[in-house]
Amino acid sequence: MAAAVWPALPPAQLKSAEDDAQARELEWLLASLQETLQSLKAGLEECAALLAPTEAGSTLAMSSHRSEALKGFLTRVGTRIVKGDIKLRLPSLPPPRHAPAHSPVALTLSTAPTAPTPLPLAQLSAVRSLLDASLDVIDVSAWGGDAGSAPFMAGQLRLLAEHVADARAALKGGAGPDESPADVAGPWWAVATAQDAWVPPLPPNVALNVHVADAALVLEVRTLEPVPPGSYAAARAERGAQHGTGAGGVFGFGIRDRLAYALGTGGSRQPAHDEVGEVFMWKGGEVKVREKVRVESQDPSLIAAMAKLGALEHTVALSRRALDVVMGKEEDEEGEGG
């Protein structure tokens, strides 16, 4: 069955009627988008509240599965880790002096006035900035621009979509769909916590860092061993373009670590982790990762924020598609592609 206008209109008059109908539909859509933007604003504010500092914060257990390698907890307040207490029991990490051989190394995040500031989480700081930018886009769309202009609103929705997608990607653990967690959090050798951020200070051959992946808090601990200068120059050159170099300084292994490595007793057992054989620059020296422990703990607030951002991203995508259809963009793009 076909629909037809009767009596038939001349082509020019029919085209004019179609244009008038499309203009009215576009006017209605632009008006309804203001309601959608207010709904999006409420959702973004809920996400910001989930990441805002609270008095209690979120205390998460950080324990390795099926082993005693790492046990403890971390407390997140807003975009920072403000409290931490962990115990490490690794074959390559000697026990504290004057302690039994089986004793773990106990570390507590320092709260002394002279200690470094609480551990920042770069990914959560990026999410907060993106949420603020998204709210600014909505305010400009509603009050600071021409809300009745379709091209203006299309541009604002495109910018909003980018901000929301980047925020969700940062919570997931990357800056974009084709990028890794290190793109936001930074490589471990560059963002490992300061030695004196913990009590007692971290051993000089230990790198510890915290980041976010899949809305979970991830704690990684690595014990390192020095590499004779130049023996891995080729590997270093190959990886240099990807990783660069870490912070400068003097490599701080003690005489016992150097002697053990020189005598070949630094560990004959092949380490079982994903960085075996790789060489990194750590405090001015070449190192290999001897042991690596990775523990993650799901954060309910981050999970809720990531789910809300996914829903907001879908809503923005639907609004953009509807506006493109009424503006005739999809037909133009198909015509150009054909």
Rank of each mutant, 00 (worst) to 15 (best):
I255T: 13
T265N: 07
T265C: 08
A237F: 10
D274S: 15
P271H: 03
R236G: 02
Y261F: 03
L259Y: 14
A237P: 01
G244N: 03
A237R: 15
D274C: 14
F280A: 11
Q242C: 01
A272K: 07
A235E: 12
A237G: 05
R258C: 10
F253V: 12
A235S: 08
Q270P: 00
G240L: 15
G277F: 05
T245A: 13
F253Y: 06
F251K: 09
G254C: 11
G267D: 02
R236W: 09
F251P: 00
S268E: 05
E238S: 09
G277H: 03
E238P: 00
D274K: 15
F253R: 04
F253N: 03
H243G: 01
G249Y: 03
A241G: 13
G244D: 05
F253D: 04
R258Q: 11
G246T: 10
G264T: 00
E238T: 02
S268N: 09
E238V: 06
L259R: 14
R256Q: 14
A262Q: 12
A237L: 14
Y261E: 10
G246P: 03
V250I: 05
G267M: 05
P271G: 06
V250M: 03
G267W: 04
E278W: 04
E275C: 14
R236L: 13
L259S: 11
F253I: 03
M281T: 10
G277C: 07
Y261G: 02
S268A: 13
A262E: 09
T245H: 12
F251S: 11
T265F: 14
A260H: 07
R239G: 02
L263I: 01
Q242G: 01
G240P: 00
G277Q: 06
R239K: 04
G254V: 08
G252M: 06
G277Y: 04
G244K: 07
I255W: 15
R236P: 00
R256C: 06
A235I: 01
G248T: 10
W282H: 14
Q270N: 01
Q270L: 13
Y261S: 10
E275Q: 15
G264H: 06
M281F: 09
E275T: 11
W282S: 04
G254W: 11
A237N: 08
V276K: 12
W282D: 08
T265W: 15
P271Q: 06
V250R: 07
L263D: 03
Q242P: 00
V279T: 09
G249C: 03
H273P: 09
G244Y: 09
G244I: 07
G254K: 09
D257V: 08
A262T: 02
G252E: 06
T245R: 14
A247E: 09
A247F: 10
R256L: 15
A241F: 10
R256P: 00
A234R: 13
V250T: 08
R258K: 13
A272Q: 09
V250E: 06
A247H: 12
A235C: 02
I255V: 14
Q242E: 13
G248S: 13
Y261I: 00
F280Q: 07
D274Q: 15
A241V: 12
H243I: 14
T245K: 14
F251G: 13
A237T: 05
R269S: 09
V276A: 12
G266S: 05
V279C: 09
G264Y: 08
Q242H: 10
G266K: 10
T265Y: 13
I255H: 13
L259E: 08
H243P: 00
R236C: 04
A237C: 08
A247R: 15
W282M: 07
M281A: 12
E278I: 01
A260G: 02
I255R: 14
